[in-house]
Design a protein around this nucleic acid. Structure first.
Lengths: 204, 204
DNA sequence: TGTACATCAGTGAACGCGCGTTCACTGATGTAC
DNA sequence: TGTACATCAGTGAACGCGCGTTCACTGATGTAC
């Protein structure tokens, strides 16, 4: 009708990403199709191909964005945690992110992230590096590699079990309490753990 | 051609389940369609409707079967664990099951299991009850509810992170070592944890 | 400042596909007498 | 033991759907001179 104003969208790439996010949160991953994205962005079905090679590329871009948002969200919970309580606060933020963006979170972890998307690979590497860093700061003198795996797995598992309705998620407070006590338990165990894992100074 | 021998399949219900499992392991959840299942079972596209109301019902049946198999697999690792090492063996079996049946495992936890399938609800309840029971036996005198959540989350998280290629899964031994050390860490923490959670006798 | 032209972003028709599901049907099975 | 009939399990044609992707195209933008 009035092509002059809309022919060039302006920033279709970003609009596609936004539309994909919305579709994901509304209809789950099944609703995330290139055509639906194009429709929502108010553009022809093939326009997104200008910006994404194929569906997989769009999904990877959404996932990568999710990782970056997760990182931001965690940093907001505490910029540089170094006590058990601060670590717990970050863990709570992790689980809360999953519960607030269930389909996004699932998409982020849905498949063994294909290594052809460097953006996606970089984003997940950043997360795991971040976890390692804060575990190192919170548990000085302990094998950080082994422990950060444990911490991440615990928190990640809590996130998924809540997401899948296997644990009580009726209020944010209940969730937060569960996550906090689980993380604290780990902290108390750390000195004992250093004996089973690699060499480490047990002095804390 | 020779309808007399194949018109009545014999046990199409079970054959559909088997076909669904195979498709899941081969093509992932995207490959699990009613039509593909029918094809693989050597039957017309609509025959499965005799046994499953719709696609969702088939998927729920597959998931429920997965839960039962998981339970069997865990029981084989150790029928009645009561020491940290025995618990760890069960945890290793859990993660191994996930790695051996990735798509099945994902399907089992893919959605907040719709409560319309009693079979599926019962199967997941059985798993969580089982976890609670063995945690109780392994950690006497500790709040079993809180701790079993923590144990399950840890192991579940390890399973998913391995599944998603976020952790090193290059050999079964590496995986087993990681899982074992994580679970042992939890065990060492239990006395400390009983202070943060509900009332419990710290005497072990 | 004005014009020519290359580049870029979006169009829209068309392809072939596999899917879930419905429907009226028919062949096989088993049971009652 | 034999027959009539109800029941059950599977058939196959057909529906409408949305999808990913291709292709030749055209309108808008911006740059060189």
């Amino acid at each position: 009708m009035a092509p002059s104003s809309t022919y060039h969208h302006g920033d279709l790439r970003a609009a596609c990403l936004r539309a994909a996010r919305e579709l994901l949160e509304e209809d789950g991953s099944a609703g995330l199709s290139l055509r639906a994205v194009a429709r929502r962005a108010g553009v022809s079905a093939t326009a997104p191909y200008r910006h994404y090679a194929d569906r997989e590329a769009l999904v990877s871009a959404v996932a990568a964005e999710g990782y970056r948002e997760l990182a931001t969200h965690l940093a907001q919970a505490h910029p540089a945690p170094s006590t058990p309580d601060e670590l717990a606060a970050v863990a709570v933020a992790y689980v809360r992110f999953a519960l607030e963006h269930p389909a996004l979170f699932r998409a982020m972890f849905a498949e063994p992230c294909d290594p052809t998307s460097e953006e996606r690979v970089a984003a997940t590497a950043a997360i795991s590096e971040y976890v390692r860093t804060i575990v190192k700061a919170t548990f000085p003198g302990v094998d950080a590699d082994a422990l950060s795996t444990t911490v991440w797995a615990l928190v990640h598992g809590l996130a998924f079990l809540h997401l899948d309705g296997k644990l009580d998620s009726s209020t944010p407070e209940i969730v937060a309490a569960q996550v906090t006590s689980a993380v604290r338990a780990l902290f108390d165990a750390a000195p004992a753990m250093s004996g089973t894992a690699a060499a480490a100074q047990p002095g804390v």
